[in-house]
Amino acid sequence: MVVAFSFVVFFFAGLAKGVLGMGLPTIAIGLLVLAMTPGEASALLLIPSLITNLWQLLRGPALLPLLTRLWPMLLALTLGTLLTTRWLVQAQNAWVGVALGVCLVVYGSIGLLAYRPRLPTRGETLHSSLAGFLTGVVTGATGVFVIPAVPYLQALGLPRDSLIQALGLSFTVSTLALGAGLWWYGGLEGAEMGWSWLMLLPALLGLEIGQRLRQRLSEASFRRLFFIGLLLLGLHALLRAAL
């Protein structure tokens, strides 16, 4: 039953990523915690997240310039994740559920408000490092790596294709750092990695269909439903943590 549920979750998570270029880990973690601990959900997420984000990263037009510009963020993100992943492994920690709920509510709210800040280039190294470290802390606590990385990258004013590639770069580094942290703190087992490889199939199927739907559906309508769903999942996670 859990396996079938996980297949459905990764299909829809891949579908969202195919349409929007992001959302796979957020949807997957938000739904999988209904049936397992956040640590188990994060371990299951690793392979589908890594492969789909590498695909997104390598298809972009400007990898080297992005690496040159974003390395402070990526380094700080890795450090923040490695320092805090133990919170995710300790499934009995009630704060994990609260942090996950808050993260989803914040991300869903920002998306619904369509808030698009703009940052000056002056002081970008400091801003980049701070955004990266905070994203790493959130990743280590919840397994979700969108806050504040996604709003920060949107605030840089990158062209659309470069933004999609920058998101893929950030998500790839986050996935690798999360996997290293889970391994270091004893949150990975051979069986879990085998199931993670299996979940790649529905994720890739959803990704392919999502890319085709992107040409036919209104992205604005899909995005609105996507963020409403995340908001509801976040509220549900907070409710579960409070009970």
Rank of each mutant, 00 (worst) to 15 (best):
A4R: 08
F5P: 00
F5V: 04
S6P: 01
F7Y: 09
V8M: 08
V9S: 02
F10L: 02
F12M: 03
V19R: 01
A28V: 01
A28W: 03
A28F: 04
G30D: 03
L31F: 08
L32S: 08
V33S: 04
L34R: 11
A35C: 04
A35W: 13
G39M: 07
E40I: 09
A41T: 07
A41R: 01
S42T: 12
S42P: 01
I47D: 01
I47W: 02
P48W: 02
L50N: 11
L58N: 07
G60K: 11
P61H: 10
A62T: 10
A62P: 06
A62H: 13
L64P: 09
L66R: 11
P72C: 06
P72W: 05
L74S: 07
L74D: 04
L75P: 04
L77I: 10
L79R: 07
L79E: 09
T81A: 14
T81I: 11
T81D: 07
L82P: 06
L83D: 13
T85L: 05
L88I: 10
V89D: 01
Q92L: 13
A94N: 13
G97K: 07
A99R: 10
L100T: 11
G101T: 08
C103K: 02
L104I: 10
L104E: 09
V105L: 08
G108L: 00
L113I: 00
A114H: 12
A114I: 01
P117I: 12
P117S: 14
T121S: 15
G123N: 11
E124Q: 12
S128I: 08
L130V: 15
L130R: 11
L134K: 12
G136W: 06
G143W: 03
V146C: 01
V146P: 00
I147S: 07
P148D: 09
A149I: 10
Y152C: 09
L153V: 06
Q154V: 04
L156G: 05
P159I: 13
R160V: 15
R160S: 14
Q165F: 06
G168M: 04
L169E: 08
S174T: 04
A177Q: 04
L182R: 07
W184F: 14
G186E: 05
G190L: 10
E192K: 12
M199V: 00
L200N: 08
L201K: 02
A203F: 04
L204Y: 08
L205W: 10
L207Q: 05
E208Y: 15
I209N: 05
Q211S: 14
Q211D: 14
R212I: 13
R212F: 15
A220K: 07
R223L: 00
F227W: 02
L230T: 04
L231S: 09
L231C: 03
L232H: 06
G234P: 09
G234I: 09
L235W: 07
L238V: 11
R240Q: 14
A242V: 13
